[in-house]
């Protein structure tokens, strides 16, 4: 793991890192990756581990509204950092300069 790789990961994860953070994370994440790389040996050959559908599986419900209209609107609006009437204010995503 290089500093450049950590900087790239931070960009993907949308977290701004200080140079000091890049430094420590480079060392720490390298050590952790070295440790977890053992899974390659533990997993062994994929052929002898056929993926199985467990007893526990996802259940889908009908795609329908389950609550009264507007029952959460005020509470949710109150949590938003910036609102305009019943709308959330966000930065424009088109035609940005950067």
């Amino acid at each position: 793991m290089t500093k450049e790789e950590v900087e790239h990961l931070a960009k993907l994860a949308r977290i701004e890192l200080s140079p000091a953070e890049v430094e420590t994370f480079t060392t720490e994440i390298s050590a952790i990756l070295e440790y977890v790389s053992a899974v390659k040996d533990i997993a062994g050959d994929a052929a002898d581990t056929a993926p199985t559908v467990g007893r526990h599986h996802n259940i889908f419900r009908k795609d329908e509204v389950t609550n009264e209209p507007n029952s959460f609107t005020e509470a949710l609006l109150a949590e938003m950092p910036q609102t305009e009437g019943r709308f959330m204010v966000v930065k424009k995503i088109l035609n940005t300069d950067s």
């Binding site: 994860a13 949308r14 701004e16 949710l76 949590e79 950092p81 966000v90 930065k91 424009k92 950067s98």
Partner: peptide, 22 residues
Amino acid sequence: GMRYGLSVEGDNLLDVYQKTRA
């Protein structure tokens, strides 16, 4: 930084994400 929780002002959308999470 949009729907709830901390939101740190930035120059553009990406900047808001990165600063808020930082």
